[in-house]
Design a protein around this nucleic acid. Sequence first.
DNA 1: TGAGCTTACTGGTCAGGCCAGTTATAGCGA
DNA 2: TCGCTATAACTGGCCTGACCAGTAAGCTCA
Lengths: 255, 255
Amino acid sequence: MSDGAQFRQVSPVRLYQRIVEQIEQAIARGDLKPGQRLPSERELVSQFGASRPTVREALRVLESNGLVRSRPGDPNGPEILPFSSAGLAKEMTRLVQFDNVSMAELISFRMILDGSASLLAARLRSEEELSAMEQTLAVMSDAIEVGYEEFSKADVAFHEAVAVASRNSLIEVCNQVVRGAVLSLISDKVSHAGNSTALMRESLHHHQEVLEAIRAGDGLAAARISRRTLYDYYAGYVPESEQGPLLALVEKEDT
Amino acid sequence: MSDGAQFRQVSPVRLYQRIVEQIEQAIARGDLKPGQRLPSERELVSQFGASRPTVREALRVLESNGLVRSRPGDPNGPEILPFSSAGLAKEMTRLVQFDNVSMAELISFRMILDGSASLLAARLRSEEELSAMEQTLAVMSDAIEVGYEEFSKADVAFHEAVAVASRNSLIEVCNQVVRGAVLSLISDKVSHAGNSTALMRESLHHHQEVLEAIRAGDGLAAARISRRTLYDYYAGYVPESEQGPLLALVEKEDT
DNA sequence: TGAGCTTACTGGTCAGGCCAGTTATAGCGA
DNA sequence: TCGCTATAACTGGCCTGACCAGTAAGCTCA
């Protein structure tokens, strides 16, 4: 290791990147708030001293990152969008698709997130949050008669309510994303195989147990049950050779 | 709810988006593997039947998402990059910056991830992985004399080794990202305040305890200790009024 | 055979232009 | 005066064509 000056690798910075940076920072600093408008492209051209194609490249990048939205003909210019987790979801979906993340890893991660959410919810939930969860379970119960589609929607709503009660938006977002990834991967199989009233009743029962533990403030139980619920529900989609990590999570406090 | 046809909101799809989609899908399908090259911009122009600015907008978006890289003058065309979690990290950093995710939430999330990683590592680790962890601790021990910079690097390496042993790349990546976010948020304070040999020794001791639990295969203890270690280390950066969720995680099995 | 130069490409950037769409506004009619 | 409508001035989407500074392959010459 030399003790002289440390040089970092340099990379040529494209003009459009400088523009992206400037606008990103303006948003990060709060100079530009959601709902506010950017100047028109032609105006930006003169402000940045770049050509229109260059400015447009910058806007397309910002747009694809969900920071702004341009509508043709809008005289007010591109709109600054409120933050959304869509970008995060997209990135995580890519992670799953490209980086060969296995089904087992996904479900394992979901068990961790959902279990933690239940634990935190049991210890932090307010009365309003509790009744919100109760309500989603009521919807779930009714939905059994309607069909799997509705049931699944209520299921998601319940987990969402738990995540909200955990008071941690990272858990909320990540759980949402991972849940989406899992569901999209098994959607073809489940839409037919899962349309069983008995299975739905069983699932509902599990969810009621989780809710009961949350109501009782028993975080450990809530976490354990919610992990096991997920395991029971999804283990069938995981090859036996990869079930080790899943079992490691359900056996957690079984001794 | 009508029982007729369901119409979804439509939004005009830009030309550049179609190009992005096609290339993204080609990569997702595996038709384009990392290291392979895309045709030159002018060649893409004729393949897609779009103009160069449009093709360039697509390439800029792909580039900003970390999927490809263009170098001026390269006769082989833009390169398909291997997957990297940089994009995920960027999105999560944005989540923290824009969506007012508090320090408490970040640390809480980190405790969950790191705790789960330790738990899984305790139950799944191989001998090689165990000795890899031991080695990082040895480096950490030596680094105390060198300085905080080195120590911190070895610290990260240890957590990384644990995450690898958890056999779950989602944990690995997310933990990495969240750790980066936490560190970048407190970097200014810690670089001076943390340069204490005593603190480093204490931190090292905690890490040794975690490793011991992992070696013993005691997942619950490993998780508990690693959560507590993080709490002790970072609680000072969290206002007291927001420490509830953190305490909810360390008191987990204290009764 | 090897070193150096040339050339044919690459991507980065710009200028200018056309088109379809949106909207504010001016003007019209009641 | 008020409400509606038609227009005009803008917007972004997209294209053509061009210039420049690089790169690297291939050619030439020693």
